[in-house]
Structure formats: C-alpha cells, structure tokens
C-alpha cells in the first residue's frame, strides 16, 4: 500500500514534466518519468550491430548499458562529441537505454493543452517519434515519443531478426 502511494506521488510530481535537450539549435522534449539519470560522455565500447545509431555499450558502475545516438536516430548528421555532450539514461520497458544528445538544458512543465498535434503534411520514418509541438518561452519544442524513438523500426526489425534466430524450426 505504502509503496503504491509513494509511487503514485512520484507519478504526480513528474506529471507534465519534460526534459528538454538540444540537437543543433533545435529543442526537443520528452517526459521525465522515463529518465533515470543524466551523465556526461563516457567511453563507449562499439558493438557491431547493423543499426548505425546503436553506438555500443557503456559501463555505468558495473552495469552494461546500450547507448544510441539521438542525432543519427533522427536522421541528422553525426557530430563529434564534446564536453557538452550528454547521455540521458532512460528506463523504458524495463530496460536501461542511453540516449546521446548534444546537450541537456532544463526540466519544464508542459501541460497537455500546450501540446499541438504535429502537422501531418509529410510522413517519413521519423514521424512516429513525434508526439507534438509545444510553444513555450517563444520557442517551439518538439515533443518526442521516447518509447517509439527507442523501440520502433530498425530496432524492432533488429529484434525480430534475433527472435527469428532463436526460434527453433518446426516441421
């Protein structure tokens, strides 16, 4: 009971809170409840996965955490990491995943009514990441669907490939 209450409270305090990060001069935001911590750039051990945006794994206090590059994931061109580069460690679907971004700026409250649907003029493979647009402080922030960002498309394909490998032939 008590735990549930605490959890409920946590959800409440995190409600409508978004983490803002930057790629180039654009601002992106996603719900803070997915974030477990934000760390500076770490030494990345590259892994030979097909998906280019999978940069490899980092060793975070003994835990091995996969990191993906937000720029590559969103179809932007790669940029060398610097001292402002951050890894946002998320906990999504019970798995820790690090997201490499140019820089993290702040946590903001964005109410649902502030979020507008993204214009559906053009759909490309990045469209599923978009949840909407929000205008605060005279700047437009792109609200991201972090679950889709981390899990759809290439990755799900990657997953199914390995699933298929695991499946035993039935005949």
């Amino acid at each position: 009971m008590a735990e549930e209450l605490v959890a409920q409270e946590e959800v409440d305090t995190q409600k409508d809170k978004f983490l803002i990060f930057h790629l180039d001069d654009r601002e992106f935001a996603f719900e803070i409840r997915f974030v477990s911590e934000i760390i500076g750039m770490q030494k990345i051990t590259p892994l030979p996965y097909e998906a280019e945006f999978v940069k490899g794994v980092i060793n975070l206090r003994g835990r091995i955490i996969p990191v993906i590059d937000a720029r590559l994931r969103m179809g932007l061109e790669e940029r060398p990491y610097d001292e402002r580069t951050c890894i946002i460690v998320n906990q999504v679907r019970n798995m820790p995943v690090g997201l490499i971004v140019d820089t993290v700026s702040e946590v903001k409250t964005i109410f649902p009514e502030q979020i507008e649907k993204p214009p559906q003029l053009q759909t490309n493979k990045q469209s599923v990441f978009l949840r909407g647009l929000a205008k605060t402080d005279d700047r437009v922030k792109v609200i991201l669907d972090i679950e889709n960002l981390l899990f759809t498309e290439e990755l799900s394909r990657l997953e199914t490939v390995s699933e298929a490998n695991k499946q035993e032939p039935v005949h």
Partner: peptide, 25 residues
C-alpha cells in the same frame, strides 16, 4: 560473463560481455 543488453538483442558469435578491471568492456 554478463549478458548483452536485452535492448540490443543477440550478437552472433558473442555469448556476452565482461567488464574489465580498467572499466573497459
């Protein structure tokens, strides 16, 4: 032996990874 992150799925020919003394993987 630590398993590869579930997120990434399987990597052919690799049974897992290990953290070395200097923090490398």
């Amino acid at each position: 032996l630590k398993p590869l992150p579930k997120y990434l799925g399987r990597l052919e020919g690799v049974s897992g990874c290990a953290v070395l003394g200097n923090g490398d993987i």
